[in-house]
Design a protein around this nucleic acid. Structure first.
Lengths: 75, 75
DNA sequence: CAGGAATGTAGTACATGTACTATCTTTCTC
DNA sequence: GAGAAAGATAGTACATGTACTACATTCCTG
């Protein structure tokens, strides 16, 4: 029961960098559908994958993932 | 195959604060054996648990977990 | 219109994370 | 020495994360 929702900004970070899910998946070495599942919130990644995603975007884990919803862009 | 090793400093943080595994487990709402498994490296936590652990110790996720081994105390 | 790129949906299969119980050591303290 | 506290080991059961395949949809471009 580790079932609380985790919010993420993968889609935003991806949009910001202008890369597709497939490109991100390839860079991370995971299946491209896995990125889709994460962005849609169907489940949250393992810690290992989360660390690699944050590392790939060169940000802290908390910048990408949070137990609380991220604020909208206009603060 | 999210099977790469993740290192953690849970035992150190716990020692620093002088709390037992059971106390930490209780504070986090997980089974005390789960903390044991994590400290022994038998597996790494879910992202949700990792976020809660970092939050509990009031540090960033990367302070507690890393894909690379943590340096020993005498740097 | 044909075709490709990006995304969504559906479903199977397998590995891993977590809970839980029980038993064992070791260490500390009375 | 008895008992408690902390930790280790072993094993079962179940939920979730990831891979993978196939197909549908939308949008863009030649």
């Amino acid at each position: 029961m580790s079932s609380e929702v985790i919010y993420n900004r993968i889609a935003m970070l991806r949009a910001e960098r202008g890369i597709s899910r497939r490109q991100l998946a390839e860079a991370l070495g995971v299946h491209y559908q896995t990125i889709g599942y994460l962005e849609r919130g169907e489940y949250s990644p393992s810690l290992h994958l989360a660390l690699r995603i944050a590392e790939h975007f060169e940000v802290a884990v908390e910048v990408v993932f949070s137990t609380a919803p991220f604020p909208r862009i206009g603060s």
